[in-house]
Amino acid sequence: MTNPTDNNDGQPLVQIEGLGLSHDRQSILEDVNLTVEAGDLLGIVGPSGAGKTTLLRTITGTLRPDQGSVTLRDGLQIGYVPQVESVNWNFPVTVRQCILMARTSRRFAWPTNAEKAAVSEVLARLGLDGLADRHIRDLSGGQQQRVFIARALLRSPDLLLLDEPTSGVDVALRHELLHLLEELRSEGTSIVLTTHDLNGVATHLPTVACINRTIIAHGPTSSVLNPQTLEATYGASMQVLEHAGMRLIVDSPHHTHSPFGPDRDALLESAE
């Protein structure tokens, strides 16, 4: 991981070049090239085991690539929101304590006045007023999700990374969450999220990257989400329908390939 550059103007937030990573001799990522620009709201989609979370971890620096490089813009602040399924909901922590733990520049338990103000502000921003002293388990699913976004936002990140934020949430909550991310992006926070929710991506996200160990396609959602790219990514035939100005992705009952089988190279070529 390198942090070069003297001038941030025009430099991407994240530049991934030739990234390769394996675990127990099994390749997880191969020759991944991806750029995250300031102002991006990027969805990373792909099948389970495609390397989506691993890719996020290489950006945060918790995983080191075996090959290639991940270059972050100098001084880039990253906020990371984990999958809510990974949270220990019985852990004795209130909403305030959960959010404040991200402020690692201060080590004591008790917050400064500035920190108290920052916590109040971020809670109000995310519609969590009055919940600061609640236990994290005693919240609705949407509130729980927003607590972890609030924790990441308290670090005033340039780039917000979210791992499967739409996983296990109902339609209303997904809608609310994706609108919130659009708002955050309009306020200047760049966002990268991983998801299985192709229709949520098609409706809300302007850019998408399809991944299956390597980046199969990256660009505007309207051009990337096509049947060829989706088949190359998932190994399953899908149809992309236009309805009332929206794109809908539906499974096709026919013509299924394995994403790891002999058809993969041909599918990759057709996607290109």
Binding site: R57, T62, P82, N88, M101, A102, T104, L161
Partner: peptide, 12 residues
């Protein structure tokens, strides 16, 4: 932070 959420603590 490390006790509650080691992965995000490391990422931070």
């Amino acid at each position: 932070f490390t006790t509650f959420d080691p992965e995000v603590a490391a990422a931070s």
